[in-house]
């Protein structure tokens, strides 16, 4: 027996898979977006609205769930390309599963590819999926205290979308207090209050998505691998 000192994170293999997938996505020019939230916060409804609004963009969706394919069917009915991924009981998507789903769907003729992660505010934040951007949803009925309870997801997200703002009259959701709590965890995060139902606030979010895609492709032309091959 000999002792080998590793000092590696338990998820080191996932981090390597994530880097490889991110490089592949850069080469293909498709922006992969990891969409995270609790169950029932309106991920599929938001995506349906985005697919209708972002007409000039070709959108693909990977629906990760423990079981069923109701979400993928809803998305396909709108004319977007969708694939249902079953995580086999697992509470999150990792980079290996995401890469397999990307393979199944294909990246040709796509601009934006959404990964609708498993509905859960904890585990999905702990695994790098290989996405170019991570976005989380917090719906008004869930309450403005969620940044206090699930700090990691707020810290890991590039944007936080506050959904179901049309229900604000029925709940004690203090948007200013929520913004302050999010900023405290993650000063870089963009915050978009929206109602996918009425369309309120959608424009700002859609502008941000278009800009993110432009940047992703610009970065691809200027720096093919963004230094990610250095430590691979």
């Amino acid at each position: 027996m000999r002792i080998i000192e590793l000092g590696a994170s338990v998820t080191a293999s996932n981090d390597a898979d994530a880097r490889a997938l991110r490089m592949r996505m850069r080469e293909s020019g498709v922006l992969l977006i990891n969409l995270m939230s609790a169950a029932g916060s309106g991920k599929t409804t938001l995506l349906s609205r985005l697919i209708r609004d972002l007409k000039e963009l070709r959108v693909g969706v990977m629906e990760a769930d423990i079981a069923s394919s109701v979400d993928a069917e809803r998305i396909e009915a709108l004319g977007a390309r969708a694939v249902q991924v079953h995580t086999g009981g697992m509470c999150h998507m990792d980079a290996g599963m995401t890469a397999a789903a990307v393979e199944a769907l294909g990246t040709e003729r796509l601009d934006l590819l959404f990964l609708e992660n498993v509905g859960n505010l904890i585990c999905p934040a702990e695994y790098d999926t290989g996405a170019g951007k991570s976005i989380m949803l917090l719906s008004v009925p869930e309450g403005d205290d969620k940044p206090l309870k699930y700090p990691l997801m707020f810290r890991e997200s590039d944007a936080v979308i506050i959904t179901k703002t049309d229900t604000a009259g029925y709940f004690d959701f203090d948007q200013e207090r929520c913004r302050e709590r999010i900023r405290r965890l993650n000063p870089r995060a963009e915050i978009f209050p929206v109602s996918a139902k009425t369309g309120e606030g959608m424009e700002a979010l859609e502008r941000w998505l278009r800009e993110a895609l432009r940047e992703w492709r610009g970065a691809e032309a200027a720096r093919p691998a963004k230094g990610e091959d250095a430590d691979a």
Binding site: R2, I3, E5, G7, S9, A12, L152, R184
Partner: peptide
């Protein structure tokens, strides 16, 4: 103050393993 950051405590690191095979020292 609430302006605080976690320094350590969130990690899960493989420190070392005991193993057989390969180039024994």
């Amino acid at each position: 103050s609430g302006e605080t950051w976690l320094l350590t405590g969130n990690e899960c690191i493989i420190k070392e393993i005991e193993a057989e095979g390969g180039e024994e020292q």
